[in-house]
């Protein structure tokens, strides 16, 4: 179903679009940027590890912010551009194209982590040291993939209608809250836990925190435990998104809404 060459081509295409119009990333990462900067200010009075939470969380927030804002729209862009039909008629599945674009968008969301890191360095003068840099990178890459896959799930709905964008944009902040990216999961109320647990980013953020802070392990599952659950939830969402694409494409091929803008 997923064709790696098409994923790569779509990623490259999205990157080209980005470099032609880089300023358009701002609307998508302004919210995570301000959110994490405010967090930095609030944490600065407490200091210590908390500032690191803000930077690390900033990366997760940035990746998700740009994914939900740009990627879910991916097919909408083709719909508007009139290229959806041209893609549909190729032997490549739409899901591969969307995945490639989502990967690039999540990656660009990392710009936010960089921006927050710079603010932290220059405005607050904090030093960033990671407990386990290699583990951090692995967790970061996997988190990026997991957020892209989550973006794909929502992206699939655009095959049927463009009206979905207004609805999916509302999912940006709930993931900020529930993934616990900038704080410890422990402070979320008990009843919200199940919601947090089904979001792969929660486990990505957990693995990132374990790799960053000495002695951190709020759920007692360890780095590899968090990584394993991250991989597992990502695979589940990938399977779900592929099913959704197949189902919704079929539906659109019956109703003829495929290329209507």
């Amino acid at each position: 179903m997923i064709n790696l060459r098409a994923v790569k081509a779509a990623l490259k295409q999205q990157a080209t679009h980005f470099f032609v119009d880089p300023q358009w990333v701002i609307p998508s990462i302004i919210a995570p940027f301000i959110f994490t900067t405010v967090t930095l200010f609030l944490f600065s009075h407490t200091g210590g590890d908390l500032l690191l939470y803000a930077i690390l969380g900033g990366g997760v927030l940035g990746m998700w912010g740009n994914t939900i804002q740009s990627s879910s729209w991916s097919i909408g862009y083709d719909r508007m551009n009139g290229t959806l039909e041209a893609i549909m008629v190729t032997p490549t599945s739409l899901s591969s194209v969307v995945l490639g674009r989502c990967l690039w968008n999540s990656f660009i969301g990392l710009l936010n982590a960089l921006a927050v890191f710079l603010v932290a360095q220059f405005a607050f003068g904090i030093d960033v040291t990671l407990r386990d840099p290699a583990g951090f990178i692995i967790a970061l890459v996997l988190t990026l993939i997991s957020l892209s896959v989550l973006g794909m799930v929502f992206g699939a709905f655009y095959v049927v209608t463009r009206a979905s964008s207004a609805l999916f944009q509302m999912l940006e902040f709930p993931v900020y809250v529930l993934s616990g990216a900038v704080y410890s999961l422990a402070i979320l109320p008990e009843w919200t836990r199940p919601f947090s647990y089904v979001i792969p980013a929660t486990w990505g953020a957990e693995a990132l925190k374990i790799a960053t802070f000495t002695g951190y392990d709020s759920l007692g599952i360890g780095y590899w435990g968090a990584l394993a659950i991250l991989a597992f939830t990502t695979v589940i969402f990938l399977a779900l998104s592929l099913r959704l694409f197949t189902y919704l494409e079929e539906k659109a091929k019956v109703s003829g809404t495929l290329v209507r803008y």
Binding site: A6, A9, A10, Q13, T90, V97
Partner: peptide, 9 residues
């Protein structure tokens, strides 16, 4: 054209 060539493998 490059993009669509990739789509067609």
């Amino acid at each position: 054209l490059d993009f669509f060539s990739d789509m067609y493998q």
